[in-house]
Nucleic acid binder design. Structure first.
Length: 747
RNA sequence: GCCACCGUAGCUCAGUGGUAGAGCACUCCCUUGGUAAGGGAGAGGUCAUGGGUUCAAGUCCCAUUGGUGGCUCCA
C-alpha cells in the first residue's frame, strides 16, 4: 500500500492504490481543483495516473491569478493544445489530414501533418482553426488515456494506411526495448502489403508493453483520439488561451529525402493576458529586428541586382563596422598579433591542398575557370561531368606530398590525373587559412619567434541555400575577424586562453551578457580524427579550462569537434530568442601537414606547428546584425554613426550652431547639424527617431552665454544649459573610454 | 533546395476586373520658433519580371525573380 512523499518531505499513507488527483484531494480541496498533472518520482504524469507503490509526488497546478505558470504546467497545456489544434485542423481542412508528430516546445508547440494532394493549410485558415479550438476548449472535454496492445495498434494504423502514426508506434516500441534491454520480448514480422502503403517491418517489444491513446472526450467510437505518450491536462477546459501562429514545412523524421510535411506552430498560455503579453513581446522583438532597424536607420542595404546574401555597407553602417574593427584591431595588437592582407581569390590547387575543394564544394561558389581552358574543353566536346572531374583532379606530385605528410590516403587514387588533363582555375575564398598558411610558409621560423599570429579582416564567400539567407546574420559574402595562430604544441593552452580573454574584453565593452560557450570534443570511440590522442587530450583540457574560466554557461559536446581538432564556439542569444553562433576557436593538427609547415626547434630539427583558427565574432556582418538588435539601433556613443546633432532653435541661431558644430568636429566628434526650417519640436523628433545619443539644442540664450542645452537619448527633457567646452570634453571622454552607457551629466 | 505567405512612390502601407492612392521623406513658398512633427503647393509609380485569360488585369492564371516564417544544411 503506497506511502506518498510530498515535496516538503511530508508522508501520507494510503491503504489502496490512489490516483494523483486523490493525493491532491487528500491535501486540500483547493489543490485538487487547481491540479492539472503530477510529477511522480520525477516524471511528469497525468493527474489520473494510478499509484500503487511508494512514490514521491509533486502536484502540478494551473497558476493562480498573477502567478507565473510553472514549466510543467505550460508543458501540459501546450501538449494538450497540440491535440486540440490537430482536431480543429482535421475539422477545418479534412479528416484525411494525417498527423505525424506534435510536441510542445520552449515557447509553444507544433504539429507536423501530411496534407493530401489538392488540399492545403494556409494562414487564411487560422481564424477558423482558432475558432474551432476555442469551441473544443469551451466544451471542456476530458482527456481519456486508453492503453492498447501493440498488435491492435499497428493493425489499426495499417488499416488506415497511416504510415506516420504507424512509424511512431514502432519508434515507441523500439524505445521500450532500449529502456528495458533485458526484458523478455515478443513481436512479429510483416510481409509486404502494397494496399497499406506501409513497408514491411519487424516489430518487437517487451512482453506486456502497451501503447497509449488519448481520447479528447470519453473512450468511444467517433471521439477524436491520437496515439500519444502523454501526459495531458485533465480536460480541454484546463488548457488556457491558445493561438495558431505560423506555418512551415518540415520533413518526416527530419529527412529531406522523406515526405514533406506541413508544420503548424501554435502556443498556449495559462491566461489570455499571458498570451497577449507573449504576442506583444513578439511584436516588440520584431521591431528590434536588425533588418527593420537597418533599413530605418540606413545602416546597410541588400540589393537584388547585386545578389542575395551580399551586404552593401552604407556610410552609417560602415562607421559602426569600422569602429568595431579599429577597436578589435587595437586589442589584437596588444596581444601580439600582426596584421596581413590577402586577396579574395586563390588558385584551385591551393584549396585542393587545404582540402576545402572539392570536399565542401556544395557550400562554395563554383570555381572560376580560365577562359582558354574552358574554350578548349568545350571545343573537344568534353561533358559537364568530365569537366568537373578534371577541375577537381590533382596532380600525382600534389597527392603524393599530402598523402605522405598526413600519413593517410587523404587524396584518393581516382582524383589523381595526368598534368595535361587538369583544368586550372580560381576560387572565391571560402576561408582565409590557406592564404595565411602560405604567408607563414614564405619565411623560415624559429621556435624563438613562435607563436606567429596573423590577423586579417578577411572576406570569404560561401554558397548558403537561398532559404537560409537572413539579413546580415546569414549571408553569402562576409568578413571574418580572422586570425591564425601558428604555435608549438606547448603553446596551445596559452593561445586558447588568449583568444577567450579577447572575446571577454569585447563582449564586456559592448555590454553583451547573454552568451554561452560550447566546447566541441572528439568522440573517443571514433577513429575519424587526426593527430595523436595525447595532443587531443591536452588541447581538449585546455579548451575546457579556458571555457570554464570565462564565467559564462558552457557545455562540453563530445563528437562535435572538427576532425582536425577540438573547438570552442560562442553562441549569443538575440532579442527574438534565436541563438546565433558568432565566433569560434579551433585547434588544427592537420593544416601543418597539408601545407608542409615547419619551424626549427631548440633541437635544430624541423617541427610541425599547430594552427589555431579563431574568429571570435564570426563575421562582421553577423556580429553587427546581432549588435543592432542588442542595442535596438541605439548604439553607445563611440559606435554611433552620428554622435551629436546640433539643433538651432531658429535660423537666428544658425551661426552659433555652426560654431558649436565646428567645436565638436574639431574634437573628433561625429556631429551633425539640422539647419532645416522645422520648428525645434520637429528637429527633436527626427533626431530621437534616428537614435542619436546627444542633441545640442542652441538658441539665442545659449549663444549669449556660450552654452548648449543637451538632450540625452532616452531622456524626455534636456539637462539644462552647460558650457560648450564642458559638453565637448564630456562627449570626447565618453567616446575615448568606449562607455556602454551615455555618460554626459549636468554640470 | 522545400512548404506557406508576400512584392504598389525613397520609407510604411490602402487599393473589391473598369482613370494609380494616402501618410512620412524630398523640392519650393509661408511661418522664426526653447525640447517627440506649424501650414500650403509641387514633384515622384512600366503596380518585381515575363507570358496568358478577358472588351478591360495592380487585381484572375502560369513561370521566373526577390523577401518573410519555418524545415534541412552549415568547414
Amino acid at each position: 500500500m503506497p506511502t506518498i512523499t510530498l515535496p516538503n518531505g511530508d508522508k501520507k499513507s494510503f491503504d489502496k492504490p490512489v490516483t494523483a488527483l486523490e493525493v491532491a484531494a487528500s491535501i486540500g480541496a483547493g489543490l485538487a481543483k487547481a491540479a492539472i498533472g503530477a510529477r511522480v518520482n520525477g516524471e511528469l504524469r497525468d493527474l489520473s495516473t494510478t499509484i500503487d507503490a511508494d512514490a514521491t509526488i509533486a502536484i502540478v497546478t494551473a497558476p493562480r491569478p498573477n502567478q507565473a505558470a510553472s514549466d510543467d504546467a505550460l508543458y501540459l497545456m501546450r501538449h494538450s493544445a497540440a491535440h486540440v489544434m490537430a482536431e480543429a485542423i482535421q475539422d477545418v481542412i479534412g479528416k484525411d489530414v494525417l498527423l505525424a508528430y506534435g510536441p510542445p516546445t520552449d515557447t509553444g508547440f507544433f504539429y507536423d501533418m501530411y496534407v493530401p494532394e489538392g488540399k492545403k493549410i494556409s494562414t487564411d485558415h487560422f481564424d477558423a482553426i482558432n475558432k474551432r479550438m476555442a469551441e473544443i476548449i469551451k466544451e471542456d472535454r476530458g482527456f481519456t488515456r486508453i492503453n492498447e496492445s501493440p498488435e491492435t495498434t499497428l493493425a489499426l494504423f495499417e488499416s488506415r494506411a497511416d504510415k506516420y502514426k504507424h512509424g511512431n508506434a514502432l519508434s515507441a516500441l523500439k524505445a521500450a526495448c532500449e529502456a528495458n534491454p533485458t526484458a523478455k520480448r515478443t513481436g512479429f514480422f510483416t510481409e509486404p502489403d502494397p494496399s497499406t502503403g506501409i513497408a514491411p517491418y519487424q516489430a518487437e517489444w517487451p512482453v506486456g508493453t502497451k501503447l497509449s491513446f488519448y481520447y479528447t472526450g470519453p473512450h468511444q467510437s467517433g471521439v477524436w483520439n491520437d496515439l500519444c505518450r502523454g501526459p495531458h491536462v485533465p480536460s480541454t477546459g484546463r488548457i488556457g488561451a491558445t493561438c495558431v501562429l505560423s506555418l512551415a514545412s518540415s520533413y518526416w523524421h527530419g529527412d529531406e529525402n522523406s515526405d514533406r510535411l506541413t508544420r503548424v506552430y501554435g502556443t498556449a498560455f495559462a491566461t489570455q493576458a499571458d498570451l497577449d503579453a507573449y504576442l506583444r513581446q513578439r511584436e516588440e522583438a520584431a521591431k528590434r529586428d536588425h533588418r527593420v532597424i537597418g533599413k530605418a536607420l540606413r545602416l546597410f542595404h541588400i540589393d537584388e541586382d547585386v545578389g542575395q546574401g551580399l551586404i552593401l555597407w552604407t556610410p552609417k553602417g560602415s562607421i559602426v563596422r569600422k569602429e568595431l574593427q579599429t577597436f578589435i584591431g587595437a586589442e589584437l595588437r596588444k596581444q601580439g598579433y600582426t596584421e596581413v592582407f590577402t586577396p579574395h581569390i586563390g588558385r584551385l590547387e591551393l584549396y585542393k591542398t587545404s582540402g576545402h575543394f572539392p570536399y565542401y564544394k556544395d557550400s562554395q561558389f563554383a570555381p572560376i575557370l580560365e577562359r582558354q581552358a574552358l574554350e578548349q574543353l568545350s571545343a573537344s566536346g568534353c561533358t559537364c561531368a568530365e569537366m568537373m572531374h578534371r577541375v577537381e583532379g590533382v596532380s600525382q606530385r600534389l597527392a603524393d606530398g599530402i598523402n605522405e605528410r598526413t600519413k593517410a590516403t587523404t587524396i584518393a587514387k581516382d582524383r589523381i590525373l595526368p598534368d595535361d588533363q587538369l583544368v586550372e582555375g580560381f576560387m572565391l575564398k571560402p576561408m582565409n587559412c590557406p592564404h595565411h598558411a602560405k604567408i607563414f610558409a614564405s619565411a623560415p621560423h624559429s621556435y624563438r619567434d613562435m607563436p606567429v599570429r596573423l590577423a586579417e579582416f578577411g572576406t570569404v564567400y560561401r554558397w548558403e541555400q537561398s532559404g537560409e539567407l537572413n539579413g546580415m546574420t546569414r549571408v553569402r559574402g562576409f568578413t571574418q575577424d580572422d586570425a591564425h595562430l601558428f604555435c608549438t604544441e606547448d603553446q596551445v593552452p596559452a593561445e586558447i586562453q588568449g583568444c577567450l580573454s579577447l572575446v571577454k574584453i569585447i563582449f564586456a565593452t559592448l555590454g553583451m551578457k547573454d552568451y554561452r560557450v560550447r566546447v566541441g570534443l572528439r568522440d573517443k570511440d571514433s577513429s575519424k580524427f587526426t593527430g595523436s590522442p595525447e595532443s587531443w587530450d591536452k588541447a581538449e583540457a585546455a579548451c575546457v579550462a579556458a571555457a570554464a574560466s570565462l564565467g559564462v554557461p558552457f557545455s562540453q559536446e563530445p563528437g562535435e569537434a572538427a576532425f582536425y581538432g577540438p573547438k570552442i564556439d560562442f553562441v549569443v542569444k538575440d532579442v527574438i530568442g534565436r541563438e546565433w553562433q558568432l565566433g569560434t576557436v579551433q585547434v588544427d593538427y592537420q593544416m601543418g601537414n597539408r601545407f608542409d609547415l615547419s619551424y626549427i626547434g631548440p633541437d635544430n630539427k624541423s617541427h610541425r606547428p599547430v594552427v589555431i583558427h579563431r574568429a571570435p565574432f564570426g563575421s562582421m556582418e553577423r556580429f553587427c546584425g546581432v549588435l543592432i538588435e542588442h542595442f535596438a539601433g541605439a548604439f553607445p556613443t563611440w559606435l554611433s554613426p552620428e554622435q551629436v546633432r546640433v539643433l538651432p532653435i531658429s535660423e537666428k541661431s544658425a551661426d552659433y550652431a555652426q560654431r558649436v558644430h565646428a567645436a565638436l568636429t574639431a574634437a573628433g566628434c561625429r556631429a551633425g547639424i539640422d539647419l532645416g526650417s522645422d520648428r525645434i519640436q520637429g528637429k527633436v523628433k527626427v533626431a530621437a527617431d534616428e537614435k542619436i545619443p546627444y542633441m545640442a539644442i542652441v538658441g539665442p540664450r545659449d549663444a549669449d552665454s556660450n552654452t548648449v542645452s543637451v538632450r540625452v537619448r532616452g531622456v524626455e527633457k534636456d539637462l539644462g544649459a552647460m558650457p560648450l567646452d564642458a559638453f565637448v570634453k564630456g562627449v570626447a571622454d565618453e567616446v575615448a573610454s568606449k562607455q556602454a552607457e551615455l555618460g554626459v551629466k549636468p554640470v
